[in-house]
Structure formats: structure tokens, C-alpha cells
């Protein structure tokens, strides 16, 4: 518990807490000789209680005015799970259905399926840190690694806006890997790449990605949303002339990723069901114990202070109501 106040100078008002020690706030009735009044434990208790209540009420008011709050803090937690960066493809083609055309009627676009299934996936993963990045022609930073599921779900839901331009995988991967730079290595680190196409990786990026994958110890899962009749990851070129990165970017990206040396698995999903299976597979695989810090936001205690003061003052007012008024002449 780290308590702090907004305006510390107001704490000087805490001196007023001593006030009830000097003045009980009760109407004093003169008595000729108090020795004649037998000691009564209930009365002693009551007067002590009244003083404490008055002191607490004043303290509550002062602390409320000073703005008492519990500072933001992090709690160490150990859970089953992973650091996952979901890397979503936001290219134009993602807005098409698996059949490769604009979705009509009950058909779902690839992006919709991915969104729906990823949301389920995120909801299932209780203690993961999940980040979201997107890429199109350029990478988009969406949500850093966080344990806040609500934020992640919102980030995924936010991809429902119409898609952007092309597919630039290498930049996206670079962005995804950068998420891990400030994080300690606990549990497993996963980049979940969801895309429906690939692009050639230039030599510079290739060099950098190799380096980063080594440094960050990241596992890569690639869910390739394959459009019907488009080239797949595992297709062999029919013509040796097509055996190059420009003609078959998917195959070459797969080859490149396989050659990274870090654990890598590719799924080729041709329908929403296949996509679900792939995600379930990852869900099952990635459950290593991990250590992470949960952040608890700042908690404003001002309301509680005022509530306490109000309650106590109401009680004291009630006692005042029961005070005996002796007419003395």
C-alpha cells in the first residue's frame, strides 16, 4: 500500500485532529463533586469512542481535502502463458472472403474471421501479456504488451475499419519484434502473424530480422489465410521460372522464416474453421509458466475519506441529539 496525497501542505490540517482531545464538543453541565459519580465502564468507553470518532472525522476531512490516493503500483504475478504479439495484416485483400471476392450476405471477410477468432483466443488466455500490431504498407503500432484484456479486445475490434493498402511483412515483423525489447524474458515470446499474403523480404530487412529473432528468442506462428486458387505456403513452383521471391512471395517468406533458427510454425487456413483449428493449436502449445508484473492503477481514496467523515459526523450528530440539556439556574 503506497499512499500519497495531492496537496501535502493541506496535511498540516491534521493538527486539528488533536482538537477533540481538548474539547469534547459537548455541553458541559456543572456538577458539584464528580467523585460522587461512580465510574461506569460503558460511559468511559463511550466518551473514548466519541473522541476517536471526532478525531477520525476530522482526519477524514483533512485527508479528503489533501486528496489521498493509493499510487499506481505493480504486483508480481506468476501465471501460465506467454507474451504474445498479434501481428495483423491490414492489406486490402483481408477485406475479401476466403473465396477471394467481396463478402456478400452471410459470408465473412478474412479480416472478420480473424477478428472474431482472435478475440475468442484473447479471451481464453487469462494471464498472457498481449500486444497488437498491424501492418500494411507501413507497420502500425496499436497496443503494447499488456495484461489488460479489455484493451486488447478493443484493439482487435478496432481493425474493423476498412483495410489499407499493400502487404509489407518485413516492416510488420520488425515492429512486432520491437515490442519485446523492453521486456524481461519470462515465459515464451510469440509473434502471431495473421496475413493473407506475403511480400518479398529485401536483403537489408532480412539481415535485421535474423538478428532480432535471435536476440529476442521469439517463436513465430504464421497463420496464412489462403484465398482459394491463390498460391499457398507449401506449394512447389510448377515452373522453375516462377521459383523466385517476386512470383511466389509466400513460399519464399516461409523459407526465410524457417531458416531463422528460432521456432517457427506455419498454418495454412483456407476457411474460418481451419483458422480456428490453427488458433486452438497455438492456444494448446503456448502454456509455459511465466512471470509478469500486473499494474494496478492509482486508486482515489478521497471519496472513502469523505464517506467516513460523513458517517462519523452523522453518528456524532446523533449522539448530540441524545445529549441531555439540564436547565440550571
Amino acid at each position: 500500500m503506497n499512499l500519497a496525497v495531492d496537496s501535502p501542505w493541506l496535511l498540516s490540517g491534521l493538527v486539528l485532529v488533536l482538537l477533540p482531545l481538548f474539547n469534547s464538543g459537548m455541553r458541559l453541565t456543572p456538577n458539584p463533586w464528580l467523585t460522587m459519580i461512580p465510574t461506569d465502564s460503558m460511559s468511559t468507553l463511550l466518551s473514548l469512542l466519541l473522541r476517536l470518532m471526532a478525531m477520525a472525522a476530522i482526519a477524514g476531512l483533512v485527508l479528503g481535502m489533501a486528496g489521498l490516493h493509493r499510487t499506481e503500483q505493480s504486483i508480481e504475478r506468476i501465471g501460465q502463458g506467454a507474451h504474445i504479439v498479434i501481428l495483423l495484416d491490414r492489406s486490402n485483400s483481408m477485406d475479401n472472403s476466403f473465396a477471394g471476392k467481396a463478402p456478400s450476405g452471410k459470408e465473412e471477410s478474412k479480416a472478420d474471421s480473424a477478428r472474431r477468432l482472435l478475440s475468442e483466443f484473447v479471451s481464453q488466455r487469462k494471464s498472457d501479456l498481449i500486444g497488437v500490431a498491424e501492418f500494411s504498407t507501413a507497420p502500425l503500432f496499436v497496443m503494447p504488451l499488456t495484461e489488460n484484456k479489455q484493451a486488447v479486445l478493443s484493439a482487435i475490434a478496432a481493425t474493423s475499419t476498412p483495410a489499407l493498402a499493400y502487404t509489407h511483412v518485413s516492416k510488420g515483423l520488425g515492429m512486432a519484434l520491437s515490442f519485446f525489447q523492453q521486456q524481461a524474458v519470462t515465459g515464451s515470446r510469440i509473434v502471431l502473424l495473421v496475413s493473407d499474403g506475403a511480400a518479398a523480404v529485401d536483403a537489408d530487412s532480412e539481415q535485421k530480422l535474423r538478428e532480432w529473432f535471435k536476440q529476442q528468442q521469439v517463436r513465430l506462428y504464421w497463420i496464412f489465410l489462403r484465398t482459394t486458387n491463390s498460391p499457398g505456403i507449401f506449394d512447389k513452383p510448377l515452373d522453375s521460372r516462377d521459383d523466385n521471391a517476386q512470383a511466389m512471395p509466400e513460399l519464399y517468406l516461409h523459407k526465410f522464416l524457417s531458416s531463422l533458427g528460432s521456432p517457427y510454425k506455419a498454418y495454412e487456413a483456407e476457411s474460418p474453421n481451419a483458422l480456428r483449428d490453427a488458433i486452438a493449436d497455438i492456444n494448446r502449445l503456448e502454456n509455459l509458466p511465466m512471470y509478469y508484473l500486473e499494474r494496478v492503477p492509482r486508486l482515489d481514496l478521497t471519496d472513502r475519506c469523505y464517506q467516513l467523515a460523513l458517517l462519523l459526523m452523522t453518528l456524532l450528530l446523533g449522539v448530540k441529539y441524545f445529549e441531555v440539556n439540564v436547565k440550571n439556574d
Binding site: 469534547s24 459537548m26 455541553r27 458541559l28 453541565t29 456543572p30 456538577n31 458539584p32 463533586w33 464528580l34 459519580i37 460511559s43 463511550l46 466518551s47 449522539v319 441524545f322 445529549e323 441531555v324 439540564v326
Partner: peptide, 13 residues
Amino acid sequence: VISYQDMENNETR
């Protein structure tokens, strides 16, 4: 509830 003050030594109870 009554608060008595001793008239001679000002003690209150």
C-alpha cells in the same frame, strides 16, 4: 448522554 464538569477541579466526565 451528559457531560459533567466538576465545579471545583474542572475535570470533565
